[in-house]
């Protein structure tokens, strides 16, 4: 009888560990999804670059190049 109880408790313990491990893995996967976003951020920053502006500095360069 005592042996049976001990076996049952061991099984319950193993089940609990298994369920906890699955939940942990699910949490890790859920955290892993947002890590894919920095790539998208980089793509956005490509578009958001300020780029060429016809500033006073640039106009001055064009003026000197006409000489």
């Amino acid at each position: 009888m005592n042996q049976n109880k001990a076996r049952l408790s061991r099984r319950n313990f193993l089940l609990a560990v298994g369920a906890g491990g699955a939940a942990g893995a699910a949490a890790i996967v859920a955290k892993g999804v947002p890590t894919a976003q920095p790539g998208a951020g980089a793509a956005n920053s490509k578009k958001s670059s300020q780029g060429y502006q016809e500033s006073a500095h640039v106009r001055n360069y064009y003026r000197t190049a006409k000489v």
């Binding site: 500095h57 360069y61 190049a65």
Partner: peptide, 27 residues
Amino acid sequence: RLAQGKLPACAEMCSTKALLGGDGDVI
């Protein structure tokens, strides 16, 4: 340099203004 409102350093540094850089229509 473009984001700073400037043009490439090579074109701006050219002493004889042989190397032109910038808006294609203007140069």
